[in-house]
Design a protein around this nucleic acid. Sequence first.
DNA 1: GTCATAATGGGAACGATTCCGAATAAGACG
DNA 2: CGTCTTATTCGGAATCGTTCCCATTATGAC
Lengths: 139, 139
Amino acid sequence: MSLMAATQQVKRRATNQGAAVKEALAAEDTFRSAQDVYATLRANGEKIGLSTVYRHLQIFVDDGLADVIHKPDGESTYRLCGDASTTHHHHLVCRSCGKAVEIEGPAVETWADKVAAQNGFTDVNHTVEIFGLCAACAA
Amino acid sequence: MSLMAATQQVKRRATNQGAAVKEALAAEDTFRSAQDVYATLRANGEKIGLSTVYRHLQIFVDDGLADVIHKPDGESTYRLCGDASTTHHHHLVCRSCGKAVEIEGPAVETWADKVAAQNGFTDVNHTVEIFGLCAACAA
DNA sequence: GTCATAATGGGAACGATTCCGAATAAGACG
DNA sequence: CGTCTTATTCGGAATCGTTCCCATTATGAC
């Protein structure tokens, strides 16, 4: 998996369910859990199974179409990111409503690599997430 | 909970189990899961229950004695950090053996705060973890 | 249309973590 | 040193998110 570039797509069939999951994610700029997406789709009358939601969410991640954030409680949340060509970035996430803003920090990237190298670590990657309360939720 | 300072300790009874969990963590400079600590203690002949291990691990975190890292697969791992007075820091963690090095990045802190402020976010905190392969595991 | 097979869905299986309630033991007091 | 209060313990049941399994369905190629 780590050997395959994120942009390297595999042939996939177009299904209603796959489209529905993508639409559900696209409708919000917030990180949402699989269970959440599933509930929303069912509430909308979509005919889809929980397994399928998980499957598509994972596919999006594999294809570089979506980002994942693991909440402190362990739940995984997903959000479509710009597009596959978008460069590496991080997120500023509202702790309350889940709204997320994509951010970049070139300095952080180089810092991380430097620190790792100084300690003899190789094959480095990192996670950087900033949590806070968005203006709307602060009220 | 969030209102109580990390250094504000509550009266606690001293028990063998509590000490055992702390020793087990202190014995290694790696992040270890509750299940892992539990298995080690039992293997050592300690009389302790899994619930108790989880309870003490959580207490350490609440008291600011330990740091937690949520692995990508969702499992929580714990490690004693310097001491409660140690300032905010992050970790460089070996993806293979779990060995962790405490690191600091003042620049990252200020960057995070600035970015958050620019987007109208308040009550900010962040997580920064760098994963890689330590020199020993690279071989 | 026909066919091979990718995709689906729902229920079982799983693994980490939490909960519960009765049994145990730490610490205070006399 | 006893007694008593209650924090702590422990193991098994319960929870919860996620994955697995596999018979059924439906996409896309010919």
